[in-house]
Amino acid sequence: MSEVLLSGTNLGKAFGSTPALDSADLSVRRGEIVAVMGPSGSGKSTLLHCLAGIVTPDTGVVLFEGRELSSMSDKARSALRRGEFGFVFQFGQLVPELSCVENVALPLRLGGAKRKAAEATAREWLARLQVEDIAAKRPSEVSGGQGQRVAVARALVTGPKVIFADEPTGALDSLSGEQVMRLLVGTAKETGAAVVLVTHEARVAAYSDREVVVRDGRTRHVELVP
């Protein structure tokens, strides 16, 4: 197995007096697809947010390529989100004012790329996810499955090392969900991106290489004896 890309150790986080994470551990290797499973409210989303540097954990350390996220500035973390990470959420991560292609081009533009170049790249990604025909439409004008594929394209457009996917099929019917998962996993494998996939659905988790279960804020790792 290749080296560890991203790891969280002894992560704890409480919102007010409600504990969400309590000494959770997770490490992700390069190109690996890890499913984070668990019942709702178990803290799996919080774990993802901590790993992605969106939420700073109360305890524990998150290391990405040997750098500690919590010691980085907001600017540096934002740059990390822009360049090294990609995000696919259940819904609502697309900016409703922008067309699909502009949404996909957004991380590139925030990184300072010129509009034309950014949108050309964005179009390639839309084509790769088989949604090039809706490039000019707004998120409100496309179906849920198409919207998620646009979101996947946006997550991949900067060539990230990790994609964080939080219930990416949660708002979709089974068939659209299958398609999105297939494309997400397929393109991630092709580009060598690791995926942290939070889901409560076993069928979605089955697309992963490995699963981690979160229960009551703790991770449970099980190694099957072959």
Binding site: I54, D74, K75, R77, S78, A79, L80, R81, R82, G83, F85, F87, F89, G92, Q93, L94, V95, L106, P107, L110, G111, R154
Partner: peptide, 9 residues
């Protein structure tokens, strides 16, 4: 949504 895709504060 912009913050998510990596815009800093």
């Amino acid at each position: 949504a912009l913050r998510l895709v990596g815009a800093d504060g």
